[in-house]
């Protein structure tokens, strides 16, 4: 169901064993990481040779810098931070000004789409409790990134009225979901 959690549950014990000196666990971990890294860099680089170099370089970095893993933290987060650093460093070195996937925070592992979908459904449910017009405005401005002017135009109201409607709508939601505390 959730590939990221699966990977964490499988890889972290291997890493902990490796840090305790278990060579077989470490060898198994490295083999898995290689598979993931190959996919990670292949997806982000057009040049296969460069992707290959990065996989190797990242595996070496994981090895020589494994003391920087804080065992109280998720292993996949540590791994992803290193893979991403190596990727950005590669772009910096090759001075490629191509679109750098800075906002691409997709994990090395398949993204957790299930979580996103659930969050979207939650938002829909919540917005459905509001009257249509404020709900549409909030959706356009806060979720889809429209400007207030655009959304107001579409709803056929003035900008000020739209701002007030959004503000009141959010306040009503906040009141409802904090048990009317505010």
């Amino acid at each position: 169901m959730n590939p990221t959690a699966d990977n964490e549950a499988r890889l972290k014990p291997l890493m902990l064993a490796a840090l305790a000196g278990d060579q077989r666990a470490y060898r198994a971990l490295l083999a898995e990481l290689r598979t993931h890294l190959v996919r990670y860099y292949a997806r982000r680089l057009t040049n296969p040779a460069a992707a290959d170099d990065l996989v190797q370089e990242t595996l070496m970095a994981i090895h020589t810098r494994r003391l920087t893993y804080d065992v109280t933290q998720p292993f996949t987060a540590w791994l992803h931070a290193i893979a991403r650093y190596k990727l950005i460093d590669h772009f910096r070195r090759s001075k490629l000004r191509q679109t750098l996937p800075l906002e691409d925070d997709a994990a090395i592992f398949a993204a957790d789409d299930a979580g996103d979908a659930t969050a979207r459904m939650d938002v829909d449910t919540v917005l459905a409790t509001l009257p249509d017009r404020p709900a549409a405005l909030i959706r356009q401005v806060k979720l889809e990134g429209s400007s207030i002017a655009e959304a107001a135009g579409r709803a056929g109201m003035t900008e000020t009225a739209a701002k007030v409607a959004i503000h009141r709508g959010l306040k009503a939601l906040a009141a409802r979901f904090t048990g009317g505390a505010r």
Binding site: L19, Y26, D52, L67
Partner: peptide, 25 residues
């Protein structure tokens, strides 16, 4: 990429104490 690298790295899997990083700094 060959498995040589992985074998070589795995052979160097010496234990890493948790306090190694704070101690080095």
């Amino acid at each position: 990429m060959s498995d040589d690298l992985l074998d070589r790295l795995a052979a160097e899997a010496t234990p890493v104490p948790r306090a190694r990083l704070p101690m080095l700094l």
